[in-house]
């Protein structure tokens, strides 16, 4: 299972790297979103995939899942949600102001 997860993370991260390196604004944003998913999955995997009951008061089981990584990933997802919303608005505004979504043209001139 770990190997499958690691492979998935690898694929996601490589796709996101590809997207971040392209020239289109929107693809860069999507690449960052993918990278966030890859990082969260990696966190889940690295913290150990194990079977067990949810660590709640009412459950009486012999083994429990580790709640910490789940709490942390949830926090990271929430933060990622906010950041993505901001980034989308920002890239839309940039597109509107510059009339282009080509990052080559958004380099800025050399003499500035």
């Amino acid at each position: 299972m770990e190997i499958l997860m690691i492979l998935t993370v690898g694929v996601i991260v490589s796709v996101s790297t590809y997207l971040i390196l392209t020239k289109s604004l929107l693809r860069v944003v999507l690449g960052l979103v993918m990278l966030a998913h890859g990082a969260h999955l990696l966190f889940l995997t690295m913290a150990g995939l194990k079977e067990g009951a949810p660590p709640l008061l009412g459950e009486y089981a012999s083994s429990y899942a580790d709640p910490l990584p789940q709490a942390l990933i949830l926090t990271a997802i929430v933060i990622g949600f906010g950041v993505t919303a901001f980034l989308l608005v920002l890239s839309y505004q940039t597109y509107k102001a510059h009339k282009t979504d080509d990052l080559d043209e958004l380099r800025g001139s050399a003499d500035e």
């Binding site: 990082a39 990696l42 966190f43 690295m46 913290a47 910490l68 990584p69």
Partner: peptide, 9 residues
């Protein structure tokens, strides 16, 4: 996040 994941593991 990735660094924290590795550190936690």
């Amino acid at each position: 996040v990735i660094a924290i994941a590795l550190l936690y593991s």
